[in-house]
Design a binder for these strands. Structure first.
Length: 445
RNA sequence: GGCCAGGUGGCGGAGAGGCUACGCACCGGAUUGCAAAUCCGUGUACACCGGUUCGAAUCCGGUCCUGGCCUCCA
């Protein structure tokens, strides 16, 4: 079966037909770098990483673009409250983001454009929109005039009257229509600003993605992804701007949106105090356990991220490392290798990762197949030694010392001492296994 | 109020008119100094009420519940 994706724009699964089979283009909305990535941010990264791996296997080239939003009022607010310089915040956050995503085995995108480096193109687009009558200036703001676009609302399935009915946010008085949105806004000297035909200012939220996606992928490209909360208004407005600025284009052909993450059954929010940052989670769990947890539900389903779930994922990976060992490397299964048919079938069916994982469980007695399947999911990339023994605070020498004491005791059939040492190590989170041949192996719990 | 998802065994989670995945946990057995690991085996499910059908977890209608979005949240 060829690849089928659920296209939000069509509200249906559609078979994937690339515009140019030689080079597939995919744009995914990346992080706003005012704080470290949380598990909700990590979900689309991991989901689209699987899609990227899958596409790379089928097509000769995949241009994967994931932006970094480094100009945003949330960043400005963060700087103001902490006193840290904006560049320091963004650089540090980007650095940590890269480390965290690497720990989740997410491949880097081909391009990772930053908003601040594409202001010129945004200004050009805005100017085109003004010239063609889609945008207007009001009190130093440039606004996109929604009624000027006939089909506005197609992606999210809304019409303007619905929006206005439900509006719960104050409408800026200078808007010609309540649905109009900001393309450019003025900056005061204390916040970042760029020179423009409309004075010193900064871009609105949506325009950066329109400018950067089309710059790297062309005005019409294959896949645009992100969290489903972005469908409206962000992606709807991206579509509006882009289609009006580039009238001959189609913008994105397939819109792919992942479902939300909750934490222990509750919405993750700063106000609830349950935001789980990937960075902190990585102190307690390996990145692959987080990755497997994120892939354990279908990407469009809601995912409840729990401590129990993470432990279950860790346990599954333990078992896999124990029976199969690492799956990294060209020797057995790069992404062009023979991926088992049932794994491919599952992934081709709108990225059904739970089914792919289930297929993996059935392959424990055929390591070669298992490795190729695990590889395309970006799992089992550690070596077993690291997997079982890596720990920030473990003192391996001390463990070895206790192990040899215990071995001596067992030879004497002094099981009291032997069990005492087992218990002592267990307190440190070190788990011992006595093998049938008399040797003892250990691992972190 | 409007729009959109979803409710599957103790838990996680696929499937989508007949064959009733898979994993974790539990229980029984083998093995074991103990424990773990491993192997074998058993059980439990489709929110509720109607309808269509030879047959419904799956289709249709209604009810209840949960979550998301409704102008800068992935």
């Amino acid at each position: 079966m060829p690849l089928v994706l659920y296209n939000t724009a069509a509200r249906a699964k559609q078979s994937f037909q690339p515009i140019e089979p030689d080079n597939v283009g995919m744009y995914v909305c990346g992080p706003t770098v005012y704080d470290n990535a949380h598990v909700g941010n990590a979900r689309p990264i991991v989901v689209f990483d699987v899609l990227y791996r899958l596409l790379r296997r089928t097509y000769p080239a995949v241009t994967y673009v994931r932006n970094i939003t480094d100009v945003d009022d949330k960043i400005n607010a963060q700087a103001k409250s902490s006193g840290e310089k904006i560049e320091a915040i963004t650089e540090r956050t980007i650095q940590t983001f890269h480390e965290d995503m690497l720990a989740l085995n997410a491949l880097p995108p081909v391009h990772e454009p930053r908003a601040t480096e594409h202001i010129g193109r945004m200004i050009d687009m805005i100017q085109t929109l003004i010239e063609d009558g889609y945008a207007y200036e009001a009190e130093k703001h440039i606004l996109f005039h929604v009624p000027s676009m006939l089909n506005y609302g197609q992606l999210s399935g809304r019409n303007r009257s619905e929006l206005i009915d439900g509006a719960r946010v104050e409408i800026a008085p200078f808007k010609q229509d309540p649905a109009d949105f900001v393309l450019w806004k003025p900056s005061t000297p204390d916040i970042p600003g760029w020179d423009s035909p409309w004075g010193i200012g900064r871009p609105g939220w949506h325009i950066e993605c329109s400018a950067m996606s089309t710059q790297y992928l062309g005005n019409t490209f294959d896949i645009h992804g992100g969290g489903r909360d972005l469908i409206f208004p962000h992606h709807e407005n991206e579509v509006a701007q882009s289609l009006c600025a580039y009238p001959q284009s189609k913008f994105a052909k397939y819109w792919v949106h992942n479902g939300f993450v909750t934490v222990e059954g509750k919405k993750m929010a700063k106000s609830v105090g349950n935001v789980l940052s990937v960075h902190e989670l990585l102190n307690d769990f390996p990145g692959e356990a987080i990755r497997l947890t994120l892939l354990s539900a279908h990407y469009r389903q809601p995912l409840d991220f729990t401590h129990e779930g993470l432990k279950a994922s860790k346990k599954i990976l333990d078992r896999w490392y124990r029976t199969i060992g690492p799956c990294k490397g060209a020797a057995h299964g790069t992404d062009i290798d023979d991926i088992p048919e049932n794994v491919i079938e599952a992934l081709n069916d709108d990225l059904n990762t739970p089914r792919a994982i289930s297929a993996l469980h059935g392959m424990l007695d055929s390591p070669h197949q298992f490795r190729a399947g695990a590889n395309i999911l970006g799992l089992m990339q550690e070596d077993a030694e690291t997997w079982f023994h890596k720990s920030a605070d473990s003192d391996e020498l001390q463990i070895q010392e206790l192990l040899s004491q215990r071995e001596a005791a067992r030879k004497e059939r002094d099981f009291k001492t032997s069990d005492r040492i087992r218990e002592e190590l267990s307190q440190k989170g070190v788990f011992l296994e006595d093998n049938p041949d008399g040797t003892t192996t250990w691992r972190h719990q």
